[in-house]
Amino acid sequence: MYRAGLSLLVAATLAGCVETTTVPSAPVTAPVSRSSGPGLTTTDFQRVVSRVEPVAERQCRREAQEANCDFKIVLETDPRAPSNAWQTLDDRGRPVLTFTSALLKDVQNDDELAFIMGHEAAHHISGHISRTQQTALTGAILGGILVSAMGGDANAVSSARDIGATVGARRYSKDYELEADRLGTVISYHAGYDPLRGAAYFTRIPDPGDQFLGSHPPNGQRIETVRRTMATL
């Protein structure tokens, strides 16, 4: 049961990589259609998927040879779902990238959607779910041991485990987001999109700032990561 709770915590930590509240050139192997916003359609979504998915799967096989690299990319059409995208695993360990229809309304062009898609695929390629689960479990164990050694009762130990798991899950969260931005840049670039144009998405969403144990780094740092990565490409 506790491991199940940790899995939910990890999912919450890595979910919302591009969660938003709406507020008011690379060489290619074939011509790329780039819709210009605001908002994309389901046809636009499928077009971007058709270009990004094979590149992400090749990158996955190259960097994470023992991982399941058969990506499933889906659109959540529930109108109540907020603007968001996230990566999870299904019961068979297949990586699933989910995008809400509200997010399609927020992005302004194919480049932004492709960058976000590459970012989410990068979380799987880099093994961020399993790495976060491990640090969360370590934090929970250490928290429980510490409070137990200090004479805490069962409730205090349970609370300490919860706090330790949260701290553990968040310990490297910002680093993982920047890692995913770097690899997402590579993926979207090789899919024929412009990651710099895609990263302009960060200029329109609320900036989380550099919060202690925050789940996401400042938007400016993410854009700079894309710029530095592009310089190597």
Rank of each mutant, 00 (worst) to 15 (best):
residue 85 A to I: 06
residue 89 L to E: 15
residue 22 T to A: 10
residue 232 T to F: 00
residue 156 A to N: 08
residue 92 R to A: 01
residue 177 E to A: 08
residue 189 Y to K: 05
residue 96 V to N: 13
residue 90 D to T: 06
residue 147 V to Y: 01
residue 83 S to I: 13
residue 191 A to F: 06
residue 22 T to M: 09
residue 25 S to W: 08
residue 60 C to W: 11
residue 214 G to L: 12
residue 206 P to A: 03
residue 50 S to L: 05
residue 76 E to V: 14
residue 51 R to C: 06
residue 158 S to C: 01
residue 55 V to K: 12
residue 199 A to I: 00
residue 168 G to Q: 07
residue 150 M to A: 15
residue 84 N to K: 07
residue 138 T to G: 06
residue 144 G to H: 06
residue 91 D to F: 00
residue 41 T to Q: 12
residue 54 P to D: 09
residue 233 L to K: 09
residue 172 Y to R: 12
residue 123 H to I: 10
residue 99 F to G: 03
residue 170 R to A: 14
residue 30 A to K: 14
residue 125 I to V: 15
residue 153 D to Q: 04
residue 123 H to R: 06
residue 183 L to V: 10
residue 100 T to P: 14
residue 97 L to N: 02
residue 207 D to A: 04
residue 144 G to I: 08
residue 215 S to D: 13
residue 84 N to E: 07
residue 222 R to G: 05
residue 154 A to N: 04
residue 33 S to N: 12
residue 84 N to S: 14
residue 58 R to F: 06
residue 147 V to N: 05
residue 185 T to K: 13
residue 154 A to W: 12
residue 98 T to C: 05
residue 108 Q to S: 09
residue 24 P to L: 02
residue 100 T to A: 05
residue 6 L to A: 07
residue 202 F to V: 08
residue 2 Y to G: 11
residue 46 Q to R: 15
residue 90 D to K: 02
residue 78 D to G: 04
residue 63 E to I: 03
residue 14 L to S: 07
residue 191 A to W: 06
residue 65 Q to D: 04
